[in-house]
Computed example of a mutant assay.
Amino acid sequence: MENCLFCKIAAKQIPSSIVHEDDDLLVFKDINPAAPVHLLIIPKVHVSTLSDCTPEHAPLLGKMMSLVPKLAADHNIAVTYDEQGQPSRGFKFLINSGPDGGQEVYHLHMHLYGGPRPWRGMRT
């Protein structure tokens, strides 16, 4: 899409703080982070919203989701357990879809949030 912000970022026409890239996906830091770690995971192909996805998109969506544990580990927000088996750390993973879902950029993207709180009441 010619005027899509995230398409321009994926095409490297607009700079971003890239933390992961492969043939299908680009992951970069949000320029207005809502948490200590706030990453955006986007497909390089344009899909406007999650509502526009079809069964054909299942492999791409799976790839996006399966990247999350690696990104969480790389950014020190993956769930860890102490000697008693109590969990610590963790993250929030979110997709906004459409205006009522809070989507602001109409290019499918997933948010990965984490880090020390207080960001519980954050905007999403």
Rank of each mutant, 00 (worst) to 15 (best):
D52L: 07
P87M: 09
D100Q: 13
V27H: 05
L26R: 11
Y81P: 02
F93R: 09
S66T: 13
N32V: 00
V19H: 03
P43I: 15
Y81H: 10
S48M: 10
L71V: 07
H111W: 11
E2M: 13
N96M: 09
P69W: 08
I95H: 08
S97P: 00
G98F: 09
A78Y: 09
H20R: 01
D30M: 06
L108P: 06
V47E: 02
P15K: 15
H75P: 05
L50G: 06
C7H: 09
K70W: 00
M64E: 07
V37L: 00
F6I: 04
L40G: 03
H38F: 03
S88R: 12
M110S: 07
Q86L: 11
W119S: 08
V68L: 04
G121C: 02
G102M: 13
A34F: 00
S17D: 15
R123T: 10
E56V: 14
E21F: 11
Y106P: 09
I18E: 12
G102V: 13
I14Y: 05
W119Q: 02
Y106F: 15
R120Y: 07
D100I: 13
A35P: 00
R123I: 05
G114M: 08
C53L: 13
P99H: 13
P87T: 05
G114Q: 07
G98Y: 07
E2L: 13
M110C: 10
H107G: 01
H109A: 01
M110E: 01
G98C: 07
L26W: 07
T80F: 04
L50H: 03
H46K: 10
R117C: 05
Y106A: 12
E104I: 14
H107W: 09
V27Y: 03
F28D: 01
G62V: 11
S88I: 09
P59K: 14
F6H: 02
M110F: 09
I95L: 12
C53D: 08
T54H: 10
Y113M: 12
R120F: 11
P33V: 04
P36N: 02
I18M: 06
N96D: 07
R117L: 08
E83K: 12
G85E: 08
T49C: 01
M64N: 08
R89M: 12
R120E: 08
W119M: 03
K70D: 03
V79W: 06
T54C: 09
W119F: 11
F93I: 14
